[in-house]
Design a protein around this nucleic acid. Sequence first.
DNA 1: TCTGGGGTCCTAGGACCC
DNA 2: TCTGGGGTCCTAGGACCC
Length: 384
Amino acid sequence: MGRIIFHIDVNSAFLSWSAVKMLREGGQDLRLVPSVVSGDPSDRRSIITAASLPAKKLGIKTAQPVSMALRTCPSLVIVGGDWGWYKQCSAGFIDICRSYSPVLQQFSIDECFIDMSLRCKREDAPAVATCLKNQVRDTLGFTVNVGIGPNKLLAKMASDFEKPDKVHTLWEDEVQEKMWPLGVRDLLWVGKKTEQRLTAYGIRTIGDLAALELGPLTHLVGQKFARQLHDNANGRDDSPVETEVPEAKSYSAERTFSKDYTDPKDIDRALFNVACIVAHRIRRDHFRASTVSMFIKHSDFTVQQKQTSLSQPTDITAVILNEARRMLTEIWDGTAPLRQVGLGLSKLTHESAEQMSLFEDPKLEYYREWDRQYDEKRARAENK
DNA sequence: TCTGGGGTCCTAGGACCC
DNA sequence: TCTGGGGTCCTAGGACCC
């Protein structure tokens, strides 16, 4: 029995959601003018998170620097992101999707898969999908694309066809006509590097990839990835719609400076800030980490990383910061200009699974108290 | 034009154990 | 004295996603 999978994708999610909010507050509809959402509109180094269709028509793309987009369109409307609102919009969207099928996998804040195999017949699927898409639009005020296919891969590829506010199918017998002519970059998991490798070998379309023998492909991208690409290019994917929300495996925070820093005092201040942020987050989620990773990005975008394993899992800012500072001296000469610093925590355990140490460093209690006060302050600020 | 922030997974080499 | 093969863990780096 073939499956019926829907992939539902919010069109220009952050931009649409900001537009809905602005409309409600009596403002203009951002979707009708060249407009973008960016992290921090005042920061020259921020990039575009989402763009309206009129902006896209001018050649403005997601992930482009704001400064570049402004040169393309000086009258571009730029708004900052609003995470709290986006989460509300996302929850409303997911709720509607779930009402069509409880077998739902949230893929990101603005995308999900639902397994409709037990809910409709193949020939009814487009009508059901149209109903879902209209319900989201009419109750929440933003549009989605729905892709329908026999598996997650094809459903996702289908939702990426013509936008916005559209339903598309991509069944096995449509793969040759609808997917094979597409450039290889359009295939899920084929990024810039893989595209370069494939085109250097003369593989330009997904059809080229599908026709390729596994042997030469293994040579290009490695065995595991070759198997997956080959299957996907042929429309094969048997991964299930996972309803369980996987537990986090790592937390990280990073900070890009408004201009490259060389002063160790500036770097250390930034490191302190990211340590506070990331440690706060694992405490909030009741984890402790056994591995601390430190990364720096140089002016030329090269990245250096160093990680260390702790003898005891921790959630204490001071302990994490201390490790980070030590690792920084090992990878940074103290003079090279840096673009970014970041900190990661992994090898997580639940704080309840913690082994109590009888002979704990008395300083740790002081550090914990400091963290408690920090967490309280943050909670107060967030509830305002 | 000059490139954010937050994640996941894979690979490859070295250490260490049996 | 010199040698195998496999398994696991750790670290650094790189690719991809949204």
